[in-house]
Design a protein around this nucleic acid. Structure first.
Lengths: 104, 104
DNA sequence: TCAGAATATGTCAATTTTGACATTATGTCA
DNA sequence: TGACATAATGTCAAAATTGACATATTCTGA
């Protein structure tokens, strides 16, 4: 959108900048959540494939069963870092992470 | 390795479990760092491609120039979450993240 | 060579994430 | 059914991450 059109619209009362920003933020947030959920799902699958319980995985990465449950649920309180660490502990390769993300 | 062999080796003084654990932890850490650096590099490239300065990117994601510099350096004090958020702000798709990781 | 823009580095209070724990829910098998 | 393993949910103090700031360094034209 060019400057003139923006100025016309904003003069007409449209808070266009902030709407755009809002939409962009929600899109970013959507993408972030999708990535988190894709990794969470991969972790759950990989853990079961490796015949680990949430508790045994927790021990392996020096965490707790409840936190592993939250990882696999994609809970807002867990970081991507934690999920990624867990995935590597379950034997995933960076390439596998890449595949998981491609499907997000 | 089976239980008997492990017990023989441990009786002989090998702290096998912990050595294995140590090696595994360092491998996990290596993979994690590789992933972080791959994303950091992608962010730096994508930012330049989008003609943003570290400062303008910082504004866009409500962060600061210094933190963006640390993101692009893969500094230990920045989380994957922050880098991923920045990547999405620069217009990356989850699929692009996947490609970046595949090359890690 | 200089000035200004861009980037890097160090620090810190405030916010967020963490492991741990308690408890509840859901399977699962005899 | 009931005992037991596994998984889900809520809470919280401790630990890690964050934006902000100050400052230093590097880059880039003129």
């Amino acid at each position: 959108m060019n400057k003139e059109k923006r100025e016309r619209l904003e003069k007409a009362g449209f808070k266009l900048g902030s709407v755009q920003e809002f939409l962009q933020l929600t899109n970013e947030e959507t993408a972030y959540v999708e990535v988190k959920l894709a990794l969470a799902k991969t972790l759950s699958e990989q853990r079961k494939k490796s015949h680990f319980t949430q508790l045994s995985l927790a021990k392996k990465i020096h965490s707790s069963q409840s936190r592993v449950a939250k990882m696999e649920a994609g809970d807002p309180s867990v970081s991507l870092d934690l999920i990624v660490h867990a995935l590597f502990a379950m034997g995933c390769t960076p390439r596998q992470l890449g595949s998981a993300l491609a499907g997000a």
